[in-house]
Nucleic acid binder design. Structure first.
Lengths: 222, 222
DNA sequence: TCCTGCAATAAACATTCGTTTGAAACATGA
DNA sequence: TCATGTTTCAAACGAATGTTTATTGCAGGA
């Protein structure tokens, strides 16, 4: 099984280096030399550097979507026809996110990659993730809609992204933040600690009172 | 005033391109040709690409810190000795953030740059910002501490970063999110709209109930 | 045993990058 | 007007990048 070995060694090395330095800052030569494979192996097995980046994400997101879909199936069955409470939806998503990388990879790396996917230019990545995994996200947001009928659609849309920002930002910058927290508060924080801290904050954010309607602006074409 | 013209033209062009594509993905040739200045001008006026990146940030952050310090001065004077309510602190920060770029530059660009500063590798940038502007942030967090005495220090630390994540993530990805929101909800959202929406969410997040204490874990060295 | 197809390898390719150089153009003050 | 210091400019440098090529090694089936 020589092929599979080379492929996974490339993926294992690439995901760590990407998470540490970003995509543009990580050269194929750095990856291949650290993985102890030939430079041309990346282009041979994946086609291009872009395709390698997407493959790194697919290795996380494919099992995630499978598990998340079935977790939502089970949740819907349990509440047969009824509304699933917001807390359970968030809980299920958190559990799935924790489960998937735990098997083999690092949750920290996964979160770091997600953060990069959003902030780095890499237009092709955003497009790829949107097209490939947009549907599972749509299913989730539809369930959230049913769980929060009092929220206007636009307001829920923005709040979901506020929360997404909190999670991705915090978990993807975990290392740097942990260093500060450890120095100042002498406590070693794990990802699970953070999720425990995130839960009440996220719930409170989603349930916050509605903002006042926008002040009447001077009419202006836009 | 030929020099100053070249310098500002480089800065104006660089900040837009950096915000659009990231630092590593923007070459000096792209910047200088778009700014219609000679390629060598960057190294002549700034010394290096790294220094140019820092200069782009300094042009935003220098006036910001000046204004923020004096806004906090005024706030402290008004509450002479007493505690400044959390809402006022957040309000003051938001107002200052809105004020500074409004004069000349784009708030959107500034937020995008902040998001990049956090996520892109660019260790030198994080270090530079920390060393150069860490003190004003410390002053702010100290006031937040007085405003939220019921929060354990560590909890407040994390919640502040949760909120920071929300703001930076949302505002730095504003363009992409706005496109979706506009398509789905037929509403054109401005930065000010977003801040109006952010306020109750942020306040609710900071005032959320405390998380349960960590479950007793099996003893494990770590 | 020979053949076919896949995988690994070293080498080279063509760009692109940040930076440096040395001369030209320019402005300023004596 | 001349001398001086600063800014602009075209050109080149050396290093690093992603990708391609041609060759070699090696497996399993006819």
């Amino acid at each position: 099984m020589a092929q599979s070995d080379t492929v996974t060694r490339i993926l294992d090395t690439a995901e760590v280096l990407f998470a540490e330095r970003g995509f543009a800052e990580t050269s194929l030569r750095t990856i291949t030399s650290k993985a102890r494979v030939n430079l041309a192996a990346v282009n041979y097995h994946f086609g291009s550097k872009k395709a390698l980046i997407q493959a790194v994400f697919a290795r996380y997101l494919d099992p995630f979507t499978v598990r998340f879909h079935s977790a939502l199936d089970e949740l819907e069955a349990r509440h047969a026809g009824g509304v699933i409470p917001l807390e359970e939806l968030l809980e299920t998503m958190a559990r799935t996110v924790l489960e998937v990388p735990a098997e083999k990879h690092s949750l920290k790396v996964f979160m770091k990659l997600l953060g990069l996917a959003y902030s780095q230019a890499q237009g092709h990545l955003r497009r790829y993730i949107q097209e490939e995994y947009g549907s599972v996200f749509s299913r989730f947001t539809e369930l959230v809609r049913k769980a929060t009928p009092e929220l206007p659609d636009a307001e829920r849309f923005w709040r979901l992204h506020f929360v997404l920002g909190t999670v991705i930002f915090t978990l993807s910058g975990l290392d740097a933040l942990r260093d500060i927290a450890e120095k100042d508060y002498q406590e070693h924080v794990t990802v699970r600690d953070l999720i425990r801290r995130l839960r009440p904050v996220v719930v409170a954010a989603m349930n916050a009172p509605l903002p006042p309607p926008p002040a009447a602006q001077p009419a202006k074409a836009s």
